[in-house]
Design a protein around this nucleic acid. Structure first.
Lengths: 159, 159
DNA sequence: CCCTTAGTTCATAATTTACAGAACTAAATT
DNA sequence: AATTTAGTTCTGTAAATTATGAACTAAGGG
């Protein structure tokens, strides 16, 4: 079987893949994983195979395998297959961004639990520090209350 | 000069410092830096000196110095001094939480720039991928529009 | 039944990070 | 002037992360 024409990236695309990559590194992804995110954002192909990704980013098969499986597990990408072919075609699961946003907010709100514990352990419940913690808890409660409303508002505006 | 009585932490406090520490690690801080955040949340002292922090967490002076300076630079802590003393007394700058939230959201919104660039580089501006990116930009614009309103609402509710 | 394709898994090498310890500095104290 | 206090800065290194390459597996084709 003849190879598909190799994906060639120009300099602007390469630079943008790095930029998007660094953004995702700062959000906790490892470099190779983050570069795959960059590639899938920038690529002109609607979907890419394992080997195309591996070649475009000069990644070993093992790094590619680990990264793709991690991204699948994170729900950041998905793949389709075609009958009679074993290859998987990967693309971003951008519909998931709203979920991703929700997850980030939920992670912030999860800190509430620790704050409550901290307050419980404080010898002086009325000191300034305790009051500050209390206010912070209030803010997190406010957030978890308002977020559904905010997302609903977005859904309505979208149409 | 006689030492101040050493800060003694009980097991619950130690455990909570680790928990809060891990939370802050997950938000990009290095372990020692994150533990200092934990300590300042949990401590019954309204403020702590360099040496108290260093001893309470069994950190070397260099680690303590680097961590405190980083936290100062991040705006997560502040210090006061007393006339005739060179020592600095550190405490959390919790008023900054709102700023911190804003920063997080801004960081998310900063991704808009990359998305716009990605869209500009796309060969096909009408493909599904382009449209998804476009929708994502829309969501980020929505967020940056709604955030001031949301924070205002919180300010009003607070009083 | 052997070969190719499409990966996965494992051992290990190469960085990078995070911290300790020692040497250093600058102000205050004796 | 010497010492103590309150740190800072500079190596060195242990540990963790990240990626590689080789060996392996499992499905499908000839």
């Amino acid at each position: 079987m003849i190879d598909a024409k190799p994906m060639v990236l120009n300099d602007k695309q390469k630079a943008l893949i790095e930029k998007i990559g660094i953004y995702h590194e700062n959000n906790g992804m490892q470099p190779a994983v983050a570069r795959i995110m960059g590639l899938l954002f920038v690529s002109d192909q609607s979907q890419m195979t394992f080997d195309e990704i591996s070649e475009a980013l000069h990644l070993s098969k093992s790094a590619t395998s680990n990264a793709l499986n991690l991204l699948l597990q994170l729900g950041q990408i998905e793949y389709t297959t075609f009958s009679g072919e074993r290859k998987r075609y990967f693309k971003l699961k951008l519909s998931n961004w709203r979920d991703g946003f929700t997850k980030k907010i939920d992670q912030m709100i999860s800190f509430r639990e620790s704050l409550q514990e901290a307050l419980a352990l404080k010898a002086d419940k009325d000191c300034q520090a305790s009051q500050n913690i209390h206010e912070l808890i209030g803010f997190l409660d406010f957030l978890s209350q308002e977020m559904p409303t905010l997302l609903e508002k977005w859904e309505n505006r979208k149409q």
